[in-house]
Structures are given as C-alpha cells and as structure tokens.
Computed example of a mutant assay.
Amino acid sequence: MKLKRKVEIAVISDVHLGTFGCQAKQLLTYLNSIEPKKLVLNGDIIDIWQFKKRYFPKSHLSVIKKIMDFASNGTEVIYITGNHDEMLRKFTDTTIGNISIVNKLVLNLDGKRAWFFHGDVFDVSMQNAKWLAKLGGWGYDILILINSFINWCLEKLGRERYSLSKKIKDNVKSAVKYINDFEDVATELAIENGYDYVICGHIHQPKMLIKENKHGKTTYLNSGDWIENFTALEYQFKRWKVYNYTNDKLAPFFTDSDLQTMDMQDLIAAITIVDNPKKKKN
C-alpha cells in the first residue's frame, strides 16, 4: 500500500457541494491521497445559494466527512468564506477544534508572507447587482446539465468530450469584462501591502504567475475549481504547485463509492500481495 503524500498546505476552492456540477468523487479521491498539515478551503465549498434539500448525494456528504476527519486527525482546517457560502460570514473568526472560519488569511511561509482570500470582493457584479450574479449561478448550473448530456452523447459516438459551459463562460467574460482586471487588482494590492504570495479562487481559472510593477513583485496563485478543472494548490518544500487531478491523479487511491462497485475478486486482488514464485527459488 502506497503512503499518502505529505503536503504542508493544500488549497481547494469552488467545490460547490450541493449542485449538479460538483465533481465530489474526483475531489474525494484527491483528498484521500494527501496528508496536509493545513487545509485551506478558499470559498464556495458548499453552495448555499443553490442548496436543495432533495439534492445532496452521498459523495458530497463524504467530502464533508473527509474534511472533518482531517480536522479530528490534527490537520488545521481553515474555511475562508466566498460568495456562494456568504451566509457563513456571520460566523467569521469562529473556531471549533481545528476548524476555523475567516474572511481572509495571512500566513508566514518560510519567511514570505502569503495572503489568502476568495476574491468575490473584486467582482463588481457581486457588490452592485447580486441578484444578477445569483441568476447567473442558476444559469451556469443548468448549462452544466446540458453539457453533461452533450458529453454523454459524444462519448457514445466515441468522440472527445467538449466543455460547452467553459467555452461560453470564457467568451461571455471577455465580452462583458466580467472579471477582466481580477488578477491585476489582486496583485497590485498584494504588492502594495508587501505580500509575496496572493492566493485566490472565485474565477475558476487555475494559475500561477509572477506579477511585477514599479513597486515590487508578487506571485499570484488561483486554485481553480472542482467542477471543470479539478485543480488545487499545494505548498511543500518552500514552493507552490498547481495540482491537476486529470494529469496528476494517483491510481491507488479510491473513493468509497469506487470500492462499493468493485466485485469480490477485484477487491481481493487489490488488497492481496501475491508473491512472485521466481523469488522463492534459491
């Protein structure tokens, strides 16, 4: 059995538990593969905007249980609130055991200052037309369902999957400049306040880049999402990396539901060590 990867900090955001677009099984596989000292939940983990009593699958509950298990086993879990879980902001600065709820976070990482926040504060539509932003959230969820059906048809025809929602979202954002200056605003503020790293979510675009102006420079990082990109940020050995589930997933780690679908022979084969008969010959 392979050991879990130890990471100093893991950052996930924009999971949107409780929505049809959430890919909880992939996230659970990732969480089962790591052993973080700190787990930063950088906003929009539970989608309270679109929460429905009749839709909260076991895989979504399993993600919450896994996060609770991390906390009970000594991992510091820091929940930074976002716009889709903004109701939790009334509990800001609340700490229960190893779990804390905050609006933003500053950490000293090997002598460098890191500034964490979700990022919706930079989104004008959230501040001035919240009802429109919420309507957009519902539309995005419907788009995910349509895209799922299209991809089901494409897979049946043996063709490559197509991210209709991502294509439309990218085009709409460039057309109306939805969050066009997000990175510039975040990095300019980070440089102005002397932060070496600025870590965000919100725009569902995983990225790591160095931004520089006449006043200094900073490293901008975005954890992406667990709807389309399946990405996280990891800090270990004094450096950051963008983890991509599609490219970096570890086959030995399974979700509970994966184990349930295995038949008995598969399960025995997965957990049994078979001796090589050649090694027994002297």
Rank of each mutant, 00 (worst) to 15 (best):
F116I: 11
H84V: 14
D85C: 02
E86G: 02
A114E: 03
K104N: 15
W115M: 07
K90T: 09
H84E: 05
D93G: 04
L107I: 10
D110L: 04
A114D: 05
K90W: 01
A114Q: 06
K90Y: 00
N83A: 12
W115Q: 00
H84W: 06
N98L: 10
I101G: 10
I101F: 15
I101N: 02
T95L: 07
S100Q: 12
T92A: 13
D110Y: 15
K104S: 14
F116H: 10
L88G: 02
F91Q: 04
E86F: 01
S100R: 13
F117I: 08
T94K: 14
E86C: 00
L107R: 03
F91W: 11
R113P: 01
N108R: 01
K112M: 06
N108K: 06
K112V: 04
T95Q: 00
F117N: 13
M87K: 03
A114I: 12
H84L: 11
I99M: 07
I96W: 04
L109A: 09
I96Y: 10
D110V: 11
I96R: 08
K112L: 11
D93T: 12
H84Y: 02
K104Y: 10
L105Q: 06
G97D: 05
D85K: 03
R113Y: 12
N103I: 04
I96A: 09
F91H: 14
G111D: 14
D93R: 13
S100Y: 12
G97K: 01
N83R: 09
K112P: 01
W115I: 06
T92I: 13
D93N: 13
L109K: 03
N98F: 02
T94W: 14
D85I: 05
D110S: 10
A114C: 13
F116T: 14
V106Q: 00
F117K: 15
M87P: 00
F117C: 12
L105G: 06
D110H: 15
N83D: 15
L88S: 11
T95F: 13
L88N: 05
R113H: 09
T92C: 07
T92G: 00
G82R: 11
L105F: 04
I99N: 04
T92S: 07
L107P: 04
G82V: 14
T92K: 08
M87W: 03
L88P: 07
A114Y: 13
I99V: 13
A114L: 08
E86K: 07
E86M: 02
N108L: 15
I99Q: 06
E86V: 01
W115C: 02
L107F: 08
A114H: 13
D93K: 14
V102L: 12
I96Q: 02
V102M: 14
N103Q: 08
F116R: 07
